[in-house]
Amino acid sequence: MKYEINIEGGFTGIPKTYKGEQSLNNEEKTKLLLSLQKTFADENTKTRDGFNYKLKLTDHEIVYNFEFDEFNIPKEVRMFIESIIKK
């Protein structure tokens, strides 16, 4: 699965971009994609210096675009991003 992750904002205001390809087994992929099917909580508009996560996933020909803040990012997406940052 191809990914492009942009993390903006934060106290530092320094944007970070991660781009590449990550191989996920079927279970991992299903978990991740299912977490993106849920209804997300509204953004917390009172947050200051919170991160803004922009996520673009390409699985074969299908492109998924999502945007999250610190409070509505699904756990599975956060874990996915964490695994990318660790690489």
Partner: peptide
């Protein structure tokens, strides 16, 4: 979080 590079105010 883990190795989290930020600090923020959330309204409360």
């Amino acid at each position: 979080g883990k190795a989290y590079n930020n600090a923020f105010w959330d309204g409360d």
